[in-house]
Nucleic acid binder design. Structure first.
Length: 602
DNA sequence: GCCGTTTTCGGCCCGACTGTTTTCAGTCG
């Protein structure tokens, strides 16, 4: 294995975070806003960068990254070489550490933070609260009683809720509101926009978009802010309202005319980076300015599309993209990660859809910690229209999950054989697998004769979390090299949203999977949706196939496959990249190819 | 601080809402 040791453990995500922070700090200091934005833009560029930043730096090609010039290239080089950035440290030291916390308050940005800091010496949430309570904030220029009151309300929210929410809980909260909006008289078209429509793993807030006649808008708005579950109203105007739902989720509603709907849907779906790139394209290609109301001639700034209607009317987003000579770009891809170039060249993939799944793997039965028998799981899979289902119960070291010893594995194998004899007539098959622990030394939890009983083996990490990132990565790569391993389970093992993923080096793991022709599991369980979608794009580029697995313990868990498909779509995956999309016979052949012959008798 | 078919200076996406203002700045998306 190649040495994975690095001089300093900063990667491009760390550098992006530092640039992001520099942007905020410069804003707090009242720096030139365009200089500030340059750092934020550079952070975005680094977050989405495919390939090896260190290699680019070594080859002196950092300035080839859009948004990185000579100055930022030098700062990246300094970070890679020393793990630190003098400029950043000086900047951090020049401001009190608690100042950044103030920005978490809704409606409270860098300019206001700067004022309360310079005029009142407020440099923490606690001091801000005290300053509001003794009335001194309301005395400041540009502030008043209302601002002071809103800051106190915002402080309470910050303390009560964290700022991002899982797609699973967000969709559950959004569903009834969406249904109510669609059912309301006067609502012509209605859709969820924003990061939820883009199928992002975590959601900052929910955006609803409605088209309606102007005279209907106020009533729709009033009903929305009075919906069940609304905790507080942040803003309510003629076309826009913003509320906080129980659980701390923010929900925004925009109402536009039906002629504006396609433009607004596109605009509010984002991402921001995608929107900016689209507008730049409209200006360059058509000399048209694009906003949420339509296209307008760039030369006539004062006459907007809002007043005159769009220069190019579009009823749907398909028409909007066509007006820019682009193929329709699915929401999941709208991250300015090459999708516009691909759409222009007609090279967009046909993304995987939920209906493409023919089966799934990694389901737990009552043999270990699942709640359904194997037969019940198989029936549920048939109910979903699947042609196969892989059972993969825990190996013996996972004692808390009633992992199976070799003797019970043999008993389970017999049950699966008996069931398959019955299911074969219906063209359905149960694949017999196991979720086998990767032990501390990188070895597998069963001996060779036991491993040879399985149709496939899912290797999984369930312990040793105190290992260093390098050691954990080596351990996983070693398991991937094992001939009996078919796929790697929940690679980043993010058990809960609030917890950090295991500190492993995913690019190295993906490279190992490519080297050994192994499959990487895209775990669809909402609390384990793991691997950033950018890594799936990277995996695809290396030809690594994935398996979208529910890690199911109950019937309800099988529904989670939809989340896995969403993440797969964000990673540009097509049905060809996902083994679950193969028909039964081809899966049998594929698993057989990955499976070494059993040892000769003896 | 970046960028360039307007290329080494002078721009940098655009609009709604709020609260403070009497015409606008700040924040947000």
């Amino acid at each position: 294995m190649t040495a994975m040791k690095k001089a300093y453990s900063v990667d491009q995500q760390d550098i992006a975070a530092i640039f992001e922070e520099i942007g905020t700090l410069l804003e707090l200091k009242g720096e030139n806003p365009f200089r500030t934005r340059a750092y934020v833009n550079a952070a975005r560029a680094l977050e989405g960068l495919q390939g090896d930043l260190r290699q680019l730096a070594d080859e002196g090609r950092l300035t080839e990254i859009k948004g990185i010039g000579a100055d930022l290239a030098a700062k990246i080089t300094e970070l890679l070489a020393t793990g630190r950035l003098k400029f950043h440290e000086t900047l951090v030291a020049s401001l009190p550490p608690g100042l950044m916390d103030l920005l978490r308050i809704p409606g409270f940005g860098p300019k206001k933070a700067k004022v309360v800091y310079e005029r009142l010496g407020v440099d923490s949430l606690e001091k801000l609260e005290a300053a509001c309570r003794n009335g001194s904030v309301a005395q400041l220029d540009g502030f008043g009683e209302k601002s002071q009151h809103n800051i106190l309300a915002g402080l309470a929210l910050v303390r009560q809720f964290s700022s991002r929410h899982h797609i699973h809980t967000t969709r559950a909260a959004a569903q009834p509101l969406l249904a109510a909006l669609r059912a309301r008289a006067g609502v012509l078209r209605c859709e969820v926009a924003g990061s939820l429509r883009r199928q992002c793993e975590t959601i900052g807030d929910v955006d609803f978009l409605v088209s309606a006649r102007p005279e209907d808008a106020p009533g729709i708005m009033a009903d929305f802010v009075a919906s069940p579950g609304v905790l507080s109203i942040g803003a309510q105007g003629a076309t826009k309202a913003s509320v906080v739902l129980e659980g701390g989720l923010q929900a925004d509603l925009r109402v536009v005319s039906d002629a504006q709907y396609a433009f607004a849907l596109n605009y509010f779906t984002g991402s921001k980076a995608h929107n900016i790139a689209l507008r730049a394209r409209a200006l360059k290609l058509k000399q048209l300015s694009l906003n949420e109301y339509g296209f307008s001639p760039a030369a006539e700034k004062e006459k907007s599309a809002k007043e005159l209607g769009s220069r190019i009317p579009c009823r749907t987003e398909e028409e909007l993209y066509a007006a820019l000579d682009l193929a329709y770009i699915p929401p999941e891809l709208r991250e300015d990660q090459g999708e516009i170039e691909a759409a222009a060249a007609g090279r967009l993939p046909r993304l995987i859809e939920p209906g493409d799944l023919r089966g799934t793997f990694h389901c737990h039965s009552t043999w270990s910690d699942g709640r359904m028998s194997i037969a019940a799981l198989a029936n549920a899979a048939q109910g979903l229209g699947f042609a196969y289902l892989g059972v993969a119960d825990h190996s013996r070291s996972s004692r808390q999950a009633h992992g199976l010893d070799p003797e019970r594995v043999r008993q389970q194998a017999a049950e699966v054989r008996a069931l398959n004899a019955r299911f074969a007539r219906q063209g359905f098959r149960i694949f017999f697998g196991a979720e086998v622990d990767i032990l501390a030394d990188g070895a597998l939890d069963y001996d060779e004769p036991t491993l040879a009983l399985f149709d496939y083996v899912v290797a999984a990490v369930h312990g040793g979390f105190t290992l260093s990132a390098d050691a954990m990565t080596r351990r996983i790569c070693q398991a991937l090299a094992h001939p009996r391993v078919t796929m790697l389970a929940h690679p980043t093992g993010r058990l809960l949203l609030e917890r950090e993923p295991y500190a492993i080096q995913m690019p190295a793991v993906i490279a190992a999977a490519a080297r050994h022709h192994k499959i990487i599991e895209l775990n669809a369980h909402p609390y384990r949706l793991d691997m950033d979608w950018r890594l799936w794009k990277h995996a695809k580029e290396l030809g690594v196939r994935c398996a979208i697995n529910p890690d199911a313990h109950s019937l309800a868990d099988l529904q989670y496959l939809a989340y896995g498909v969403g993440i797969a779509r964000k990673g540009w995956l097509t049905s060809a990249d996902v083994i679950n999309c193969l028909p039964l016979q081809e899966v049998e052949q594929a698993l057989e190819r990955l499976r070494p012959p059993a040892h000769p008798a003896g």
